[in-house]
C-alpha cells in the first residue's frame, strides 16, 4: 500500500499543474478572441514570404 502514498500525491500534483496551466491561460487572455485566433493562422506574415 506504500505505493499509494507516493502515487496519490503525484496524481494530485499533476492535477494542480493542469489547474495552474488553465489559470495562466485565462490570465494571459487566450480566450479573449477565439474567432481572431482561428483566423490569424491563415494570415501570411509578410516577413515569412521569400523575397522576390
Amino acid at each position: 500500500m506504500n505505493i499509494v502514498m507516493f502515487l496519490a500525491p503525484l496524481s494530485l500534483g499533476l492535477g494542480l499543474l493542469a489547474v495552474g496551466a488553465f489559470w495562466w491561460s485565462l490570465r494571459a487572455g487566450q480566450y479573449e478572441d477565439p474567432a481572431g485566433d482561428a483566423a490569424r493562422i491563415l494570415v501570411d506574415d509578410p516577413e515569412d514570404r521569400p523575397a522576390d
Binding site: D33, A35, G36, A39
Partner: peptide, 28 residues
C-alpha cells in the same frame, strides 16, 4: 468578418504615421 479583413485592416492601420500597434479582436 474573416482572416482577409483582419490582415488588411491591421496592416493598413499599422502603416499610418504615428500608429505604434493595431490589433483587431475578431470575436468582438
Amino acid at each position: 468578418r474573416c482572416a482577409g479583413c483582419l490582415s488588411k485592416i491591421e496592416r493598413t492601420v499599422l502603416a499610418l504615421p504615428g500608429v505604434a500597434a493595431a490589433r483587431l479582436n475578431l470575436t468582438q
